[in-house]
Amino acid sequence: MRTLKTVAAPLLASVLAGMAFSAQAAGFPDKPVEMTVLFGGSAQTVGQVLADQMSKKLGSPVVAVARKGGGGAIGYTYVHDTKPDGYNIVWNSNSISTTHYSGHVPFDYKAFTPIARIGMEVPVLAVRSASGWKSLKDMQAAGKKAGTKLKIAVGGLGSFTHIVAAALFDRLGVTVNYIPGGQGREVAELLAGRVDGVLRFPSEVAPHVKAGTLTVLCVTTKEVKVEGLDAPTCDQAGATGLDLSMWRGLAAPAGTPPDVVAKLQNAAKEAVASPEFQKAVQNVGFVPAYLPADGFGKVIAEDDKEIGSLMQKIGLEKKK
């Protein structure tokens, strides 16, 4: 046993020392910046493209590190607990509000200082073409028949897509059984006929829409135009007033020096503008929409209010 301890102690010490060592804001950045990625799929892919481009603009590596789990709670908690020196940033999204209101993290969006919004992803409602539902109204009529309960696959219980789906079907007056997916399984469940629809992002359903097996009934936002997607907005299709889209951006722990935030913001701006970034993310169905820190902060605050009241209304908020 003594031998084991003498092995473990210096090892732990050296790892600890490595973590504790970090440079001050002056001359930022003089070591790699760690970008925590919260989800797989398009979040991870776009996050890596962004990190790659930002590395070039910042002159110091930006490393995308996956810390998935708990609907984003694991990664948010990690970054929240790091020093506010700009070397730990998070590739965030509306999940900062959903994790807070579902009670998965004790802090809210104010625990982070916004750096920049990078772009948007727009959830869509897709069904099997063989279902015969040509429009949202058809699906609504089917769902309203007595004794039926539609099954809709979403990214996870309490996730953003779940909340968007709940807001949508709440407006339609249809009761729905939400099935948690994960790792891209939602579309498989739909193709196999075990669920009636999915609320997911366009790139996941695109190959099957092109092949004619799936149909997109509506897009959950009013404004953002998704390249190559030919479907009405849910607002036009019958869910009047529905306008929800997911933004993705960068944030750092609150208290990060403003000059460091400004440097990161400018690197993000140049990265988004680069033709490499534009071309790569278009293939993934991500819509670049850069916003500087202050504008991004307003978007986060507005969305937080909306998501909070939505979750309360549809009963997803955790009772304290």
């Binding site: 799929g41 398009s42 991870q44 892919t45 890596q48 493209v49 891209g184 790139s203 695109a206 190959p207 099957h208 092109k210 092949a211 097996t213 790569a280 293939n283 993934v284």
Partner: peptide
């Protein structure tokens, strides 16, 4: 899959 998408390859039945 992410890597293929970035290179403009969309896997699926149509591919």
């Amino acid at each position: 899959l992410g890597g293929l998408l970035i290179h403009g390859i969309q896997p699926g039945p149509l591919l």
